[in-house]
Write a protein that binds this DNA or RNA. Structure first.
Lengths: 192, 192, 192, 192
DNA sequence: GATGAATGAGGATTCATTCAT
DNA sequence: GATGAATGAATCCTCATTCAT
């Protein structure tokens, strides 16, 4: 089955990364064996090593991908405050369950893996950049902290009242940043 | 009548837990082997198993101990808001380095270990209880989130401007809780 | 009627064998992976398996080829003693580096591969045959031993004084075989 | 079973090294799996790694031990020429079968393992030192070569006429070294 | 009580070989 | 013919845990 399309390669990579992310979210990086990933992906052990040099490489790829995704999301949002509040809702949404668990694992890895720590710090810096120089650094860091803490709390508690949380943040955020969010109304609206 | 005093037993336990905490903070739970802890503690493998049933047991003991310590600190503080702000400064202090790393590890474990997850949630609830029923739940959760995020950011960045961060939080906290902290002045004061 | 010429096939075989020999000499048979040979040859894995049934087959082919080459050289030389001394110089020459390393690998394989052991023994016998029945078997075996030992020593020591070695052997060989080499002078002459 | 005597440790090491040497001689270094050694030794995998860092470490230990043994034997012999001839007989004896096979394996390793190559060269140098400065270097190297070649030939041929070989070497050796061996008679004597 | 030697299952990774394209 | 993606058994090694001394 040689001479395979670039698309095929990309799909395979996706398939592996997806399987790995599922396993990692379920059991953590270190409780996940390569065999688990092999099983989950439906591929063979050998093939996986043609795409990644090892487990650490896969971890880094997953963290990196998430970093990129989030940065893109941030940039896409017009207003930084709106973008931030959207980010809050997104990370607390039920669909983000896997991502929350992965983030928690990644944070634990920052202790021993400089590249992951670098990405983590970069994430904070990029949020700061999104707000621009007018907002004080400390204020931004508080907002990022809120995001991080929300991620944890949503991971631990399915029934967390996200809208109330976000509403509480909004007033705070306005004070901290000196900016006003797009619309008050939209925030209050619950999902149908 | 035991051969050795209860105090001796407690000291041994302390010694083991301390060695384990050092290793865990340095390399994470899963990159730490029991042999590492044996070495660090200066005790023998067999002895350690007379105090703990295994590695998971030690992890739980460490997390539990920290939970208790923090809860005690919270209770000791007279005013809940003052207590909270002190907690922020404490967790961001250089001396708390080991604790920050341990917390990050513990958070990662919440994914797979219900007892650790339970402790994590309990931590949030206790903070809420400290503030009492007058402060809305969402507001308290935001404050806890800030604490959690600060822990992460301080772990990643030695040069984080903690006082500026705390100052930013205070104004926010006043809004959120409808309370005023004891003294404004004390917060601004840098350590000598 | 084959699609490709017999010459083409022979060239391919040569190409593969050369690549394999390079790898084997560099890292030994067992530290060389098929992938290494694939890389070195510039061909594909699948193609290599159309020429050889596997790694062992290639090892055998290389050993066999060397055996044939040496036997031919021996036959080409007119006088057996001259031929022998030429062989000594040849195996100790810098250009023979790869061959020395391959021979050492082959010798190690004689332990577990009867066909290679058979070739090794045959090499000794052929040398005996070259000298003819007049020279005692033990004497010939001593000469062969010297050849073998020189191969090793030249492999381990770039600066081995080959001419002095050969000179020492010549006097010995004359005694052992009861024959005189062609010319004393030629042996002393260094390469320009 | 803690606090074990130094003797116990030495015996264990011996046990492992013996098992490994058996396996290595039987199948070569690289066809021998650690599991083979585990089986042959009757110990567990984990224990073996308390004595050796890995397979390479065991190989080196075996080569090193042989090097030491042979050097000691050389020193023990009074007359260097007698010592040398004894060495020849010893390496060609049926009991030396395992050692011959190990040496052949070790020689193959000289290609990729500098420490083994160093030991190999050292072996040649020590033989030279045993003869002293009076005998020309080239002559000694020829004698060493004969030893090496005899090792190979005895490994390949059970029925090699060792006494005839040694007898042929003796006359040669006398010429080469300008020395006379202790007794002619003893050399001719066959083992009963 | 205390030790640390011993276990052996489990983990990550490699690699000879095949075969669909 | 030629390719190289895919396989999966086999390998080396680690490590939590036990238990004889």
């Amino acid at each position: 089955m040689p001479r395979v399309s670039a698309e095929h390669l990309a799909n395979r990579r996706r398939q592996i990364l997806d399987a790995a992310a599922n396993c990692f979210a379920r059991n953590g990086f270190h409780r996940t064996s390569m065999q688990d990933i092999v099983r989950e992906s439906g591929l063979s052990a050998g093939l996986i090593y043609r795409y990644f040099t090892g487990k650490d490489d896969m971890i880094l790829a997953i963290v990196d991908e998430w970093h990129t995704t989030r940065a893109a999301g941030l940039e896409a949002a017009g207003d930084p405050l709106d973008g931030y509040l959207d980010l809050l809702r997104a990370i607390a949404a039920p669909e983000a369950d896997r991502q929350r668990k992965l983030s928690m694992q990644a944070w634990a890895e920052t202790v021993r893996e400089p590249r992951i720590r670098a990405l983590a710090r970069q994430g904070v810096d990029e949020q700061a950049a999104a707000f621009g120089a007018t907002v004080p650094d400390a204020a931004i860091r508080v907002l990022v902290a809120i995001y991080q803490g929300l991620l944890l709390q949503a991971a631990w508690d399915d029934e967390l009242d996200v809208e109330a949380f976000v509403a509480a943040v909004r007033s705070t955020a306005v004070t901290l940043t000196g900016r006003a969010p797009r619309t008050e109304a939209s925030d209050v609206t619950k999902e149908p």
